[in-house]
Amino acid sequence: MRSTTKNPLLKVVILGDGGVGKSCLMNRFVSNQFDEHSFHTIGVEFLNKDLDIDGQTYTLQIWDTAGQERFKTLRTPFYRGSDICMLTYAIDDKTSFKNLELWRKEFTYYADLKENNQIPFLVVGNKSDVPREEREVSQLEMETWCNENGITSCIETSAKNASNVQEAFKMAVQHWLRLESRADKNETATNDTVDLSKKYGDNRMSCCVGGSEESSN
């Protein structure tokens, strides 16, 4: 079962209210399947998936937890050591959007981040397939919230019709790479690596929807 290759392994945690589609997103990404009636998650689950970006393969270890407040003690220990956190809501559920703030706080508190060590947050608005009249959160609202919270990446997805799911994970890894290279740059005086951070350095607060900006990278 052990992988022989030494791909970089990234730990990704998907957080958000119950029912926003975290498990469905994970399953769509990992096995490209969608089961409308899959069980709600009890306890903690995870799946692995390789992702190629610019010729490099990354192994994503995706952690999916139960969202209910009651199970907080069960899930928070898993936050430690995360490389990427996906804050997820459903675009047809305003409450789940409002709760992003709580999820961000919970994660930041328990992930035990080192000082100055930024964790790439990615905001994911799932269920983009729902009919227009059922939408409760607009893209603009999402972007505004991200700007206010210093989060640079956000995207709307649909686990149901697979739209933007691959892109969301790719975007998360790219975001992680940017932060990594910036951290490297800060640590070592020598800088013979490609400086990805420069390009984004000035417009860090900008959001991008649909992954278009990212995929052009």
Partner: peptide
Amino acid sequence: KSLIEKDVNRTDRN
């Protein structure tokens, strides 16, 4: 109420 609704839809639907 809302959580029950969501979970009922995800209980033994198979």
